[in-house]
Amino acid sequence: MDYLIIGLFLSAGLFMGWSLGANDAANIFGTAVGTKMVSFRTAAIICSIFVIIGAVVGGSGTSHTLGKLGAINAIAGAFAVSASAAFTVMMMTKRGLPVSTSQAIVGAIIGWNIFAGLQTDTDVVVDIIQTWVFTPILAAIFAVIIYWIVKYIIEHTKIHVVKMDKYTRWGLIIAGAFGAYSLGANNIANVMGVFVQVSPFNDIVIGNVTFAGIQQLFLLGGVAIAVGVFTYSKKVMTTVGKSIFKLSPINAFVVVLATSLVLFVFSSEGLYNFLTSRNLPALPLVPVSQSQAVIGAIMGIGLAKGGRNIDLTKIGKISIGWVLTPFISMVTSFVALSILQNVFLQTVVG
């Protein structure tokens, strides 16, 4: 196939990556930037570097799960699915909502399954939906635990307020880098997962090092996320940082760390293998909603503080967005596939 056509079809994934960078990546540093502890520039650079590393090094687990949901076998179909999810995310971003890329892509894949007349694996769907529900709960649990630890340390040590400021900044940067890595590993599936079956890249072997085609695909997705971070995430960072809950920088650290941990446990193949090899229950490797994790962590802090100062109206509004996202994405995907097949005469189902 012509490189130009391949590039055109991949552009949907790149656009998805850009949208993810504008939204979900911003969630990691949003609170830090919103409270002015970390400058946007620093946050964007760190986020970009670690998101790419996470995508290339640890992105395969969650992509595998999305593949089980719907193995899209035509590049034009993958384009339609990815573009539909990206379009949904963009529309909701324009309304200033921290929208879930994961839910958008899942909705779009189900739309492809319906269009192709294929049965959607309900076990995988149930697995994914469970993680959607579990993500904010787990983030809240992590946030409560981290909050109490941090509170204990602050109240029982004699750290000077100025030194504390320094440690908090470093904490925010390190937790943010960890979060960016986890985001790359967890959410690259949303960006490039649908292209895995139809990847146009071949393995590159230099000496003993093999740079797999899938990794090249993920690298490209990682770069797209980085572009999204730099070009559009500032607005969302301000929303997450300021309007949902009044966060102090230390609370911001708690939120970032709790969110990062949630993403990590849902994307780490190492952790998954470690637990399953010892017959311990392991969480499935599923792309989860970064937005849900952030909101969950913020609510966790709110609960730890006695449930004061939480803007329930805003959270309610965001929750409606969560429900609407997969549905809108599914419908958009179905319509896009119809147009691509019937108007542009492309093969969307292999």
Binding site: T35, K36, M37
Partner: peptide
Amino acid sequence: YNLIPDLSADM
């Protein structure tokens, strides 16, 4: 140097 931004006004 934008130090302790949350407490700078109080300080």
